[in-house]
């Protein structure tokens, strides 16, 4: 299974490198969002304190991740998917989760750079911030990948994903915003450790439940 997982993962990256419309489209989406924030706050950039910054940052990541992950199973619906019948559904979902995790992480780093460029950089403790970005991106990826597999089967794809995903992601979002505010205020790691552990446990739950449930979506 591990070799399959790696092959599938390589295939996703190759496909993306061959026609990079998706990543460039998502980056443009990010640039537009941040530019809109910049223009809306234009003369009042000082209003963006650490709390407003964290909330804006994570809501931007939320919408970007929904758009990122929504595409994961669209290609499989239409064209040549015969090779997937050779592979176990478990390796398919895990390769998709890891690929989406890498994409979400990429979007988060690009988002951070854009936020620093256009707005400001309130983050004092970069170590905690990197930790929460990694855990939050993984949470988004693991939750949304299964939902995108469900949504790909219905007619109203992306809308359905947002409706199903937002309430489930609120827990991750709240914990991530809290830790980001802590890291912006330079508080010690021990203050944030509870929320980080909660993020880790939510990630474990969503990943293992996706792993167990995906075969039922796949074999139709």
């Amino acid at each position: 299974m591990n070799t399959n997982l790696f092959t599938l993962f390589k295939k996703e990256i190759k496909l993306e490198l061959r026609n990079h419309t998706m990543v460039s489209g998502l980056l443009l989406f990010l640039v537009c969002s941040v530019f809109i924030y910049y223009l809306s706050f234009q003369l009042h950039l000082s209003l963006i304190n650490s709390f407003v910054w964290s909330a804006l940052f994570w809501i931007t990541l939320l919408t970007t991740s929904v758009n990122t992950v929504a595409k994961s199973f669209m290609a499989e619906r239409d064209a040549g998917t015969y090779y997937y019948s050779l592979l176990s559904p478990e390796s398919i979902i895990m390769s998709k989760v890891f690929y989406n995790f890498i994409l979400c992480l990429l979007m988060a780093s690009a988002g951070f750079i854009l936020f620093v460029l256009f707005l400001n950089n309130p983050i004092q403790d970069l170590r905690v911030f990197i930790l929460v970005v990694i855990l939050g991106s993984f949470g988004f990826a693991s939750t949304l990948t299964l939902l995108s597999a469900i949504a790909a089967r219905s007619e109203s794809g992306t809308l359905l994903m947002a409706v199903m995903g937002f309430p489930i992601l609120i827990g991750i979002l709240l914990a991530a915003i809290r830790v980001t505010v802590n890291s912006a205020e330079g508080l010690d790691l021990s203050v944030s450790i509870n929320s980080l552990l909660m993020l880790l446990s939510i990630n474990t739950i969503t990943t293992s439940v996706s792993y167990l449930l995906f075969p039922y979506i796949w074999r139709s």
């Binding site: 469900i150 089967r153 739950i205 439940v209 449930l213 039922y216």
Partner: peptide, 19 residues
């Protein structure tokens, strides 16, 4: 399909909701 995908989301949502 409605029954199967509904069941999958039901289980997933229940476990994600507990926290």
């Amino acid at each position: 399909q409605r029954a199967r995908l509904g069941a999958v989301y039901n289980i997933f949502a229940f476990f994600a909701m507990i926290p």
